[in-house]
Simulated assay, not measured.
Amino acid sequence: MSIVAVLQGSSETDTLTTLSALAMARHLNLPLTGLCALPDPQSALMVVSTPESAGLSAAAATSLVELQKKLLAAAEGAFRDVVGAGAHGIEGTFVHQVATAEAAAASAATLAEAIVFPRSAARSAEPLSAAFDHVMMDARLPVVLAGTRPFTPGPVIIGWDGSNGAARAVRFHLPLITSFGEVIIAQNRKDAERDGARPGSAPGSLSDWLRRKGASARSESLEGEVASSLLALASGVGATMIVAGVYGHSRIGERLFGGTSRRLLQADESPALALSR
């Protein structure tokens, strides 16, 4: 088991992703892996038959190889700088995998204690958006989105409505949730009741379950729109992470999320998000 940081070859972005992943690795006392997946350049080019086109393809392949070298160097440099400065005994390994980011990230997420994507991956057309979409929406594996600021210790907030997505998010990320100590179960009861009664939707049910797992939690009632209230609560208590279920489905070329999920994913200021569909 390890914490995996998915890197894209951008120094600033990869530094924030690695900082979040390293903080989680230290809390769980687990190894940290920095994963940068880049496809085989030849596989990205169309096979052509004319001599003129063959020359163009060779030039394009050379350019792509040089670009990949720069991306790889930036990703490895950012990872090693962060780990070298703050690992404090945590084993850190940088891995370059020749594969699509979608395939590599889904494979890593299968057994990782947590797989951490940059926050930008939640936006369409960003370098890792297709991989984030695939892992969470198609493979239905849990992911963590790094926050928009450096990771700091604080309470964990669980956005709880008793839904399958929320339950999976809590179960998948239980080691992370309990490692940070203070847990706050947040719920807008009016929204929960309007959606229909769900077994275990009462915060007390989750509190009892967490207690049996060796953790304790307190409940916090939300007023108004759920995503805004969760973000305001997180800011007010200095939360290190929001745990929530994500709603929606994947389509070719775009991602459709439910309203609460979309607002959490698009928030400019937010702690890390631990998500599951």
Rank of each mutant, 00 (worst) to 15 (best):
D208V: 11
R80V: 01
L275M: 08
T18W: 02
A59D: 15
Q42R: 15
E66H: 07
P271R: 07
V143Y: 01
A146Y: 04
R189H: 11
A61R: 15
T100W: 07
G162N: 03
P199S: 08
G253A: 06
S107G: 09
G181P: 05
R218A: 09
A59G: 13
A186R: 06
A186V: 12
F132D: 01
S43I: 14
D81W: 03
Y247T: 15
P41A: 12
R277I: 07
L145H: 00
V98K: 10
V183Q: 09
L210M: 10
Q97E: 05
F257C: 14
S228H: 13
A5S: 00
F257V: 11
L67M: 10
G55P: 05
K69H: 08
V98F: 07
I177S: 04
V135Y: 03
P127E: 05
T178C: 10
L64V: 13
T152M: 11
T260Q: 13
G9H: 04
G165F: 08
D138W: 13
F151D: 03
T18V: 06
P31T: 06
S129D: 02
M241Y: 04
M1K: 03
R168G: 09
I252Y: 08
N164M: 15
R218G: 10
T178I: 10
D161S: 09
V144F: 00
V82C: 03
F180T: 08
L256E: 15
I242W: 05
R218E: 12
K70R: 06
A73F: 04
A101K: 00
E220A: 14
L206H: 00
V226W: 02
D138R: 12
T240S: 12
H88E: 14
M241D: 04
K190D: 15
F79M: 01
G245C: 11
M24P: 00
S163K: 13
K190Q: 15
M137W: 03
D133S: 06
E269Y: 09
Q266L: 14
G224R: 03
M46E: 15
H88S: 12
S229E: 08
S261F: 07
D161P: 09
A104H: 00
A60C: 13
M1R: 02
S124L: 11
N164S: 14
M241T: 01
A109M: 00
L19V: 10
S53E: 15
I242Y: 06
G147M: 09
P127L: 01
R140M: 12
G55H: 11
R189L: 10
E193C: 10
V226I: 15
T100P: 11
L22W: 04
H249P: 10
F172S: 06
Q187C: 09
G84A: 01
G259I: 15
V170M: 05
V237C: 11
L72M: 04
L275P: 02
F257S: 12
